[in-house]
Design a protein around this nucleic acid. Structure first.
Lengths: 114, 114
DNA sequence: CAAGAATGAAACGGCTCCGTAACAATATCG
DNA sequence: CGATATTGTTACGGAGCCGTTTCATTCTTG
């Protein structure tokens, strides 16, 4: 399986996915929020505020607020780390998995039809 | 050339591009702005506020404001339609082409290495 | 223990974007 | 022509995110 994607097709793909996200009524996740969400779901736990902030080159409050927003949408949850009570462990949810699954299907389907 | 992209790889791709956009200091384009920009560059002219609003299922002021913002960044320009002075024709710029070229390269390169 | 470091959250002012409702300019049509 | 429709913009109040600073809690370590 060789996923060659020409530069032209890359833009078509981006356009298609953007259109789908803009058209449905749900408020779009910002690029930052989406990237945080993907980090949580693609990389091995544990995930902490500080770790995510370092990985994205962003301040900690940015992470905290993004987690607040996505938590309200049911895409992630937080739990205190029992081994170090200063830490907050960010956890996946069914809602978040579903959300990314839909995104992945959209991207994959479009890329295959290009 | 068969651009098969598995759902897993689709998310990796999205994550990679998101990371690149978040990490550099430049303020991210919103999903709406990006989609408008891509519409302008990928679809045949002429492009009008009304047409874009209809295509994205979005109100006209959303388009106007996005054009204001992206105009300030040098990604698009506006010109009055001489055949119907009510219309505004949205036009591409060198800056916009360059911006999307960089995005396309990023996406394409990452997809090929997956 | 006490003092300092580390972690995540809250507070603050600022900026951008939103949705809706007006609005000015232009075109169309009876 | 005059009335109506169309196009894009502006105005307004509200909501969300930003960057920085400050804070409460917890851990580490001398």
């Amino acid at each position: 399986m060789a996923p060659h994607l020409s530069t032209a097709n890359a833009l078509y793909l981006w356009h298609h996915v953007g259109l789908a996200q803009v058209r449905d009524e749900e408020p779009d996740l910002s690029v930052r929020q989406m990237t945080i969400l993907l980090s949580i779901y693609l990389e091995p736990p544990p995930h902490t505020v500080r770790g995510l902030a370092a990985k994205l080159h962003v301040s900690k409050p940015v992470i905290t607020r993004a987690l607040d927003a996505m938590g309200k949408l049911g895409l992630v949850t937080r739990r205190r780390d029992q081994d170090d009570l200063r830490n907050v462990l960010i956890q996946r949810t069914v809602g978040g998995s579903l959300y990314l699954e839909r995104l992945a299907d959209l991207v994959s389907a479009k890329s295959n039809e290009l």
